[in-house]
Design a protein around this nucleic acid. Structure first.
Lengths: 190, 190
DNA sequence: GTCTATATAGAGATAGAC
DNA sequence: GTCTATCTCTATATAGAC
């Protein structure tokens, strides 16, 4: 069995995701990124053109696939009624995503909204279908609260961190179970 | 009536709060801060010693007073049962606070936890008293979700932004009313 | 496609005059 | 307490050899 070999581009993306999660987009330098990826500094500009483009690629790499899965899961849920939280991409990416919320950078917001806004809107429409008697504004507020709770907990912002005995996988599943109970009750209340 | 005159130190703190909220701690430079505050660049080091110390002072200025109010509100609520969301410090500070969550910087985390962690713990204890039959881990998860929802919505991360017709004051009150309904239901559910 | 070397700009911090 | 000037370091980006 050969170990999989990662291209320079992939190594840069992986290191960038980790370091942006840890230090933020402004806080992590291309020098740190290329050092962690074990590639030359100039490789970033060759493969991505600029730091801003690299940031966008970090999102694109995960979100393209993730949103396909999300929409499929939504379609299934519309038939089966069995919610399943999807957190593909791993821990580092959830933290990068949470950072994207914190950065009120207009360029990044626009990029995410233009490319992935339709997924959010499909989910909102589906929830409106399930809760036809709920005031629209009330519903949107509640979905926004759930987004906040999800982002906060999945990015390990709060004190409910994983204990070292528990695997990351089962920690996530436990967190998801708690969140679903909490969110469902908050969403349905009169 | 004389317009109030702000000291150099206060002008720096105000400008820093706004710019840190907008661009993050790493993203906002001391040069931007001092330019916005209309003071000399060297004034930051004279008054605060370093950028890191300035960041801590931005928090200390608001949190010292805010937490006194929070604890007083908790004491009242323990008697009266009338929750009131406190968001003293204004919009910019809520965004700075949300950024502090996003920054996984250990130094900043420790500073906030050392100086203000006891407030959080008092609230958790009070909630445990109100919900004596709830499993502790379940309760802590739910309080963490509420923290996420609160931070997210008060920092205007999501799409539920204030419309220009609505005043900031009444937008906040509306958001708080929605959040209290949502959080109360999520917290109490079996 | 990857390297070295460097251009250019901006950062935080400080020394010392006033 | 505030200024100018500057030190030193680091940043992003690019030019050009291999």
């Amino acid at each position: 069995m050969n170990a999989p070999h990662f291209s320079t581009k992939e190594r840069i993306l992986g290191a960038a995701e980790t370091l942006f999660a840890q230090h933020g987009f402004a806080g992590a330098s291309l020098r740190q990124v290329t050092a962690a990826a074990n590639v030359n500094l100039a490789a970033v500009n060759y493969h991505f053109g600029s730091k801003d483009n690299l940031i966008e690629e970090v999102f694109r790499r995960r979100l393209d696939e993730l949103n396909v899965r999300r929409l499929a899961a939504l379609k299934n849920a519309l038939a089966a009624d069995e919610p399943k939280l999807d957190h593909e991409g791993g821990h580092a990416f959830m933290r990068v995503l949470a950072r994207a919320f914190a950065e009120h950078d207009e360029r990044l917001r626009k990029f995410l909204s233009d490319n992935y806004g339709h997924v959010l809107r499909e989910f909102a429409t589906a929830f409106a279908g399930f809760l036809p008697h709920m005031d629209k504004e009330e519903l949107y507020w509640r979905l926004d609260f759930i987004t906040g709770a999800l982002t906060h907990s999945m990015a390990d912002f709060g004190p409910m961190r994983r204990r070292s005995q528990v695997s990351e996988e089962s920690h996530r599943e436990r967190a998801a179970a708690h969140l679903i109970r909490f969110a469902a009750a908050g969403l349905r209340t009169a």
